[in-house]
């Protein structure tokens, strides 16, 4: 039993292989395109034969059990890891080339409670943190440019609803507040593609749905393509244009209606999973193996210790 079957099952519902011209046009403008992609790490094939297309302005979820290589795929999209086989283009170029047009939110970052840097400074680093030198004193900096930078930072902080606490030290903020500011940091340069690695992890339920709604709103209003890695599909299910499930060394991709079915998910996770439809038409996945509880305390453990 493999994901190839899952893919075929999904493919069975989709259009025939000869793509109509409008699909070709849509693909040329695609934010991400993977064809037959494979990655090996330490002699082990993490996944292979992965096909994934993220259209401009689409909200795509990357789902799958622990260790399936979701974060690995994000690193490939950033150009930090090479493919061992297949084709890839990110924003029409080789991955890593256009990273100034990519906003990135790494997995499970939390700031030390004693870190004395304001939220607004963390957002600002997203804007110009990679420029050499130091910021000029205010009276020496070109006025127009300084004003433009400050306006953009204020605008993006307002967009994520963090204006009230952006001037407080980031270590003193809650996990949800930090996550909003980090999303603002990823957005501040008006990226065309947003890569979010488990942004809902370690948030409580109300914050999970609030941040999911925020990302969906940004995806529509800023016309940015979003790839979000997630453990639990339920908080984002209502917003998704497309999902990609990674498991057993391969991937199944398609629209939520195609992929999120009891049969496909049960096969992917090797465990019985049901997909229910609520009275208001929303899909709910039941029986999905829960991620082991960990790092719920944002001050506990080393945030960089566990990277997959």
């Amino acid at each position: 039993m493999s994901l190839r079957q899952g893919e075929r099952a999904v493919g069975g519902d989709s259009p025939p292989p000869a793509r109509p011209p409008d699909a070709a046009i849509r693909l040329r403008g695609a934010a991400v395109r993977l064809r037959g992609a494979a990655v090996r790490l330490g002699g082990r094939t993490v996944w292979s034969g992965v096909d994934l297309t993220v259209g401009a302005g689409e909200f795509v979820a990357l789902l799958g059990p622990n260790g399936a290589g979701k974060s690995t795929l994000v690193k490939v999209l950033l150009g930090l890891l090479p493919l061992t086989a297949g084709e890839i283009s990110v924003l029409g170029a080789r991955p890593g080339r256009g990273n100034h047009r990519v906003g990135y939110l790494p997995q499970r970052r939390s700031f030390d409670a004693a870190l004395r840097i304001r939220g607004v400074d963390v957002v600002r680093l997203g804007l110009d943190g990679d420029r050499w030198g130091v910021p000029l004193p205010a009276f020496l900096a070109p006025r127009a440019r300084r004003r433009a930078a400050e306006d953009r930072i204020a605008e993006v902080i307002d967009l994520v609803g963090a204006t009230a606490y952006a001037a407080r030290p980031i270590g003193a903020l809650s996990g949800g507040e930090q996550q909003r500011l980090l999303i603002a940091q990823a957005l501040v340069r008006r990226p065309d593609l947003l890569l979010l690695d488990e942004p809902l992890d370690s948030l409580d339920l109300p914050n999970q749905s609030a941040v999911a709604a925020l990302v969906a709103r940004i995806c529509r209003s800023e016309r940015v393509s979003v790839v979000m890695v997630a453990h639990d599909v339920n908080p984002i299910l209502g917003y998704l244009d497309r999902v990609a499930y990674l498991a057993h060394g391969g991937a199944a991709t398609g629209t939520p209606e195609e992929v999120i079915t009891g049969a496909t998910l049960s096969r992917l996770y090797d465990t019985p999973i049901e997909v229910l439809r609520t009275s208001d038409g929303r899909l709910v996945v039941v029986g999905q193996p829960e991620a082991p509880a960990r790092h719920t305390d944002r001050h506990g453990g080393d945030p960089r210790g566990d990277t997959r």
Partner: peptide
Amino acid sequence: LFASIDPDVAAAR
């Protein structure tokens, strides 16, 4: 400063 506070994002940039 970027690399000190936020090494993952800094590396991606």
